[in-house]
Design a protein around this nucleic acid. Sequence first.
DNA 1: GGAAGCCGTGTAATCGATTCCACAAGGAGG
DNA 2: CCTCCTTGTGGAATCGATTACACGGCTTCC
Lengths: 339, 339
Amino acid sequence: MASIKDVAAEAGVSVATVSRVLNDHPSVSADARTRVLAAVETLGYRPNAVARSLRTDQTHTLGLVISDVLNPYFGELARSVEEEARALGYSVIIGNADERPDLQDHHVRNLLDRRIDGLLVSPTDGGSPLMLDAVRAGTPMVFVDRWIPGVAVPVVRADGRAAVRDLVAHLHGLGHRRLAIIAGPAATTTGQERVAAFREALQAYGLELPEAYIGQGDFQAESGRRVTEGFLDLPEPPEVVFAADNLMALGALDAVRARGLRVPEDLALAAFDDIPWFVHTDPPITAIAQPTGDLGRAAVRALVDRIEGRPPESVTLPARLVVRRSCGENPNPVQRSTS
Amino acid sequence: MASIKDVAAEAGVSVATVSRVLNDHPSVSADARTRVLAAVETLGYRPNAVARSLRTDQTHTLGLVISDVLNPYFGELARSVEEEARALGYSVIIGNADERPDLQDHHVRNLLDRRIDGLLVSPTDGGSPLMLDAVRAGTPMVFVDRWIPGVAVPVVRADGRAAVRDLVAHLHGLGHRRLAIIAGPAATTTGQERVAAFREALQAYGLELPEAYIGQGDFQAESGRRVTEGFLDLPEPPEVVFAADNLMALGALDAVRARGLRVPEDLALAAFDDIPWFVHTDPPITAIAQPTGDLGRAAVRALVDRIEGRPPESVTLPARLVVRRSCGENPNPVQRSTS
DNA sequence: GGAAGCCGTGTAATCGATTCCACAAGGAGG
DNA sequence: CCTCCTTGTGGAATCGATTACACGGCTTCC
């Protein structure tokens, strides 16, 4: 593959001049410029990004470490991150942590070794020494969706409090009083917050959230199934299950079906994180939708701001409730064709 | 960040010795080795992958260019690719081409500039000059899922012929005679093949595939909707629609619903590419399932074989039919709880 | 007419690793 | 005791770019 030296030889100039043309430095004669460009053309020359990175100490690459690419929420996040990064001249290397702190560390280490310019992380845990060291060492970093408390890193996330209040109002309006939640891992901020928001919203209606109605999940479908089975085995099962993410909601749906029960007649169901498929499930599932694309884009902008020396900003966007049929009678029956 | 020179100074040896220790070269005294390792430890030294790549001309990175990360099929493919690559010591940079040849070229160029060791591509078109040049220049490459005819590059894919025959047998057995297909882009091999396989299977039952029953889609949901509406407007609409991918099937489902019609009573539906959500749609959708994870892993192994000088192998794995309820009466009613 | 400044260009140092080659020390063998 | 090999080590070239510095040739101004 042709190098800058070959181009210089072909054009009859020095490598310095070639470099100047390529980085359109002002002081280069029109004559030299055209000769260099011609040489570039005939040789099919493309600058070696590796060599350039070594010299400039910039890779124009961002790292994105998320917990589960198969979760459509993170899939959409990854997509918007890549798009915005590309628009700003950066590439993205994605690491899938699978909710495992050791895998997360593996990816962070690997990305740091590759000297990525900045790191976008949705942490699976409270922060490993490695990650804290990286922050301390000054690696540009931004947290998306989840974050690590007490670490001075900008956070881009959605606030679901209002939407959870709307959800509880909706459920209460439908007559439900025994509400349960399938929580995410306590080590994640989203795991904790959603339970807290739910409890708070219940209190506004004088409702309790008993321990038995808090099931411990791990954001994967299987845990949703397990927890839901536990709920159904209770002497007094809940009337509604609120899953803290979409995958666990799916597991819950499976569990209900497996017993020959029906949603929402026997057990109502709602989920955090909306996805296109929720429109098509039987029944369509009521969910809290995050502005995922906006989050991804905002996160990239914050990170690139930080990388390029501008002050980065934390961003919090509101989530919103999308009512469908999985919690009971549609509140807006005019829209439905008769069953 | 500490460099190899700092380590050498700290350990009181030359950089050559440090490098030898790090690459565990045999001729290094036990004494020097321990001193170097101690220095590495105290400085928290990590080798600069960029510098190493420049010198060795290996990045230990693979490029993966796919057409749509939001499609769960490609999401799963990307995940298995990343897993297998990691197991073999490689990282993966993913490029999303969005079915657009220009974007595909952008990613290929970017990846080549970064001197990735090899490229995994699921081409959106018949092959741009850029891609053909890359092959000619000897860039290790493997095609996954789709390929470009006439190009000497190993292909890893699923063969759906047998499964399509099974599907047509299933449909015929249910009494359906007017079968239509929503095709993928003619520029993709999968787009063409699935139509060909469908037509062939129909012939075995003496059935025709008239032009009016071949709708041109682009593997995106919206096109599935549009084509299905066209089918429904025909003087004699089909009894079954077979969508060449999962997203178009979803669009078809939407279109049927929007008219107040029902699946499968008014129109039966089947899809190529199975996804977890198809179990939960209303009704559950009959689909042809590819061994996606196996494809991803096989593709990575073939590519790494090629990179490391072993002869790479093309791989074809069979897809299989998964019958659910979207084409009519369940052939195995014992399994169902009464409606 | 000479000093000062600008413009375009080339030489060479540099980034952080790997690796060829030279060389010193020490043991084996004649 | 001298030669020859082996073993461990360091010096320096190298990968392909960027960029500080120097320099030659011109213009400009006093």
